[in-house]
């Protein structure tokens, strides 16, 4: 995975993306026990991706850059050194802020950025799939999340209603 991180850092240095942070399953593995996850979710600010005249988002600059390095699109991502890397343009305020407030982490000898636990939990809550909710529970139970920061986040990003439903469903203290 270190090679993937090196490529991401190079993309940022070359201005292909303005910024990035890893979220999703790999970010969860950073805090939790390892479990199977298929891809690396890389969140990139919306401004970093091209928006066409019709307002459609194009990942062409990212895909074109990677193609020149010999990495080709596969399914919904790009295969980089045996990892399926999915580039996800931000479309929610919580995601933009998660990138800006990401945690700097060293993997091997390479620095990367990973969603802070509070942002990861909030984004997984927002995403709301069953497996996302399972990760939120794991993050909360593992004391990875500062609840004061988390509550402030969900309040500011309009996730309070989702949190109330979640807390009731999983019997978590609001």
């Amino acid at each position: 995975m270190e090679r993937v991180i090196q490529i991401l850092n190079r993309m940022e240095a070359d201005g292909v993306i303005d910024n990035y942070a890893i979220g999703g399953g790999i970010a969860a593995v950073y805090y939790l026990e390892p479990y199977e996850t298929d891809d690396i979710d890389v969140f990139v600010p919306m401004v970093a991706v091209a928006v066409g005249e019709a307002g459609l988002i194009s990942l062409e600059p990212i895909y074109g850059y990677l193609k020149n390095l010999g990495y080709l699109p596969v399914k919904e991502g790009v295969l980089i050194e045996d990892w399926l890397v999915q580039f996800l343009p931000t479309f929610e305020s919580i995601q933009d802020e998660a990138i800006l407030q990401s945690r700097h982490v060293t993997y091997g000898k390479t620095e990367t950025k990973i969603f802070a636990a509070e942002y990861l939990a909030a984004e997984l809550l927002r995403s709301g799939r069953r497996k996302d909710h399972a990760r939120v529970i794991d993050l909360l139970e593992g004391d990875h999340v500062d609840m004061e920061i988390f509550r402030e986040l969900i309040s500011r990003h309009g996730l309070v209603d989702k949190w109330k439903v979640f807390a009731k469903q999983f019997q978590v203290e609001e």
Binding site: Y30, Y31, P34, D38
Partner: peptide, 21 residues
């Protein structure tokens, strides 16, 4: 067991993820 696995170095956890894959 879960706590022990969670406290492994990130690199080691990713190795486990690769094996699971």
């Amino acid at each position: 067991r879960r706590q022990r696995l969670a406290s492994l170095p990130f690199e080691q956890k990713i190795e486990i993820v690769k094996r699971l894959q």
